[in-house]
Design a protein around this nucleic acid. Sequence first.
DNA 1: ACTATTTTTTAGACATGACTAAATATTTTA
DNA 2: TAAAATATTTAGTCATGTCTAAAAAATAGT
Lengths: 224, 224
Amino acid sequence: MENLSHSEENYLKEIFHLSAQSNDRVSTNHLADRLNAKASSITDMLRKLADKELVSYIKYKGCRLTDEGERIAVQIIRKHRLWETFLVKKLSFGWEEVHEVAEQLEHIDSEKLIDSLDHFLDYPKFDPHGDPIPNKDGQIEYRSSKLKLIDVGIKSRVEIVRVNEDSLSLLKFLEQQELTLGTVIEIMEKFPFDDSVRIKVNGERNINLSKKVIENISVKLLDE
Amino acid sequence: MENLSHSEENYLKEIFHLSAQSNDRVSTNHLADRLNAKASSITDMLRKLADKELVSYIKYKGCRLTDEGERIAVQIIRKHRLWETFLVKKLSFGWEEVHEVAEQLEHIDSEKLIDSLDHFLDYPKFDPHGDPIPNKDGQIEYRSSKLKLIDVGIKSRVEIVRVNEDSLSLLKFLEQQELTLGTVIEIMEKFPFDDSVRIKVNGERNINLSKKVIENISVKLLDE
DNA sequence: ACTATTTTTTAGACATGACTAAATATTTTA
DNA sequence: TAAAATATTTAGTCATGTCTAAAAAATAGT
Ligand SMILES: [Mn+2]
Ligand SMILES: [Mn+2]
Ligand SMILES: [Mn+2]
Ligand SMILES: [Mn+2]
C-alpha cells in the first residue's frame, strides 16, 4: 500500500532473501555486503524501515521483516520473476540476460500490469532459473526437496530444476554446455580431492563439473 | 549514452513536446506548468541540463534541446509509445489506462529490451492514441496532414487517426461512445454558437460533440 | 518614458540516500 | 576475563531534486 522508493524496496527484498537462508535476524554487515553499500548506510535505512514498521530492528542485533514488510518483499519478488519469465518466454532473452533488466522492472508500480502479465504468461509457476513465482496472494510453492547436485550420490539420475542466478558467468557456462532446466544428469564418478564430478548428460555425453558448478545447481531425483 | 535520472529524462521529453508546438525557445513558466513544478526548480534543472550539453539555455530566454538532448528525448518517447502499444495489444489495457504506466516504463534502461519489444510488437508505426512511434534510429514518420476534427467542413467524410491522450476523461468518453481510431465520421451540422457539431458515426448513428471534444481529435479526409 | 505586471532568477531551506571517519558495542581468542 | 578483533552505530558531509520568499529582469500599458 505504501509508496516506497526503489532503495527501500531493494532492502526489503534482500532482507527476505537473507532471512530465507538463515532464519535468524539479518545482520547489518551481511546486508551491506549484498547491497553493495556501507554498513552505516544500512543502519540509516533500517531505522527508516523500522519507523514505517516494515522491519523489526534491534540495535546491534540486526533486523527481520514484519508481516507487512514480508508481504511487500514477496510482491517485489513476484514482479521480478514474472518479468524475467516474460523476457525469456516472449522476448527471447537468454537466462543470463534477464536479471539486470528485472532489477529495474520489479519497481514498476501497477497491480493491474503485473496481474495482466501473469495472465499473459499463463500463470507460470517458476522463473527461468527455476525459482518459484509467488502468486497474487503472495503464496510461494516451494519445491518439496532442496537437493543440490553436489549432494547427489553416485549413479543417481536427476533432473536440473533450478540454478543459482547470482553468477552471470555460471549461467553463460551452463547455457553453452546445454545444461538447462529439465536436463537429465547421471552422476558417473566423484572426485573427492576437489569435489568435482563426472556426469552423463541426457544419456549422451560425459562432462566434468567443478565443485563451484555443482553446488549451484538444484535437482530432483528421478526414480528408475 | 549518459546516465540520466528519471527527472532529467522527463524534462527532456517535455521540452521536446513543447518545442514541437511552438518551435520557439521553451519558457521556464511553460515548463513549470507542464511538469507540475515551480519555476525555480525549472531554472535549477535547466542549468544542470545545460552543463551536460543536453539543452541550450539562455537566462531569461528559455531553452531548446541540443542535438544530443533531442536524440535522448526521442528515444524516451519511443519507449513510452512502444510500452503503451504493448499494454493495449498484448495485455488488454484500455487506451485510457496506459499512459500512467508508460510514464514509469519509459525510464527502463535497456536497448535490447526496447528493440526486442519493438520486434515482438511487429514494429508498430503508431501508438494506441495514434501518435507516431520513433524507430530505433530516432526517425519519426509524422502524418502528412494535421487536420483536426474541429476544422473539418460540413458534409466531409473523415476517419479518426489520433486523439489527444492528455485527458483521461476524454479517452474514456470516446471509448464509451465507440469513437476509436479508424472510426469513420461525417459532419452533418455545425453549431456556430458553441462550436459543437452533429456527426454521423460509421454511417449509422448521429451524435453531438462539443468543441472540447472535436478540437482533440485528429482525422484524415476520405475521398469519396 | 515611466510605471505596473508578469516572468524568471537567486538565496536559503529541506528531505532523501549515500559516504567517510571516529566512537562504541559485541564477540573472539588467548 | 582482559585484550584484540570485528561489527555496528554515530557524527558530520555531500549530491540530488524540490520548495518558498525575495530580488531582478523583461514586458505591457498608459
Ligand atoms: Mn533475478
Ligand atoms: Mn530468477
Ligand atoms: Mn502517453
Ligand atoms: Mn500515446
